Amino acid sequence: MDAHLRAGIAIYNAGRFHAAHDAWEDRWLALDAGEDERFLHGLIQFTAAVHHATGRNWAGARGLAESAREYLADLPGEYRGVNVSGVRASLAILHADPESIERAPPLGLTYGGQRLALDDLDFAASAIAAEVLAEEGEYDHATVERAVEYAREDIAAGRETSPFVTLVLDFVRDPENRGIVHQRLTEHTERRAARDRDVDGLFEP
Rank of each mutant, 00 (worst) to 15 (best):
A125D: 10
T110C: 10
L72G: 05
A194Q: 10
E145V: 07
A117K: 14
P76L: 10
E149A: 14
L29W: 01
E136A: 10
G34W: 08
A68C: 12
F46N: 03
I101Q: 06
A147Q: 13
L94I: 08
L75V: 02
Q183M: 09
S100Y: 12
V87C: 07
G158V: 10
L94A: 05
Y150R: 10
H52M: 15
A130W: 05
P76K: 03
F46P: 02
A3R: 13
D200E: 14
L202R: 09
D119F: 05
A125I: 02
Y79E: 05
T143L: 13
E136C: 02
E145H: 14
D26Q: 14
A59L: 15
T47D: 02
A23D: 02
A117M: 13
M1Q: 11
D196W: 02
G34D: 05
I11Y: 05
G34C: 07
H18V: 11
P98W: 04
A125G: 04
E204N: 06
D32W: 07
A134M: 02
R62M: 12
A104I: 14
D74N: 13
D122V: 09
H51E: 08
F123I: 08
D26G: 06
R56Q: 11
E66Y: 05
I155S: 03
E99H: 08
G179C: 03
D122K: 03
L109E: 07
D140K: 04
L167H: 14
L72H: 06
L91S: 08
A125C: 05
H141L: 15
W28E: 10
W58I: 04
R159F: 12
R88P: 00
A142I: 09
D32N: 09
T47Y: 04
A30S: 15
W58K: 01
A129N: 08
D154A: 09
A61R: 12
D74C: 02
H18R: 13
T186F: 13
V165W: 02
D2R: 15
L31A: 14
E204M: 13
Q114D: 15
R146S: 06
L31E: 15
Q114P: 00
E66T: 03
F39W: 06
A151T: 02
G112F: 04
V165E: 05
D200P: 00
A157I: 01
L116G: 03
V82C: 03
L185Q: 05
D174M: 10
A3L: 07
S67K: 04
A127P: 04
N83V: 06
L5P: 03
D140F: 06
D32V: 04
E25N: 07
R159G: 00
G15V: 09
A117I: 02
E204D: 13
D32A: 13
H41R: 14
D174L: 13
R115L: 10
L185K: 01
Q45I: 07
S100D: 15
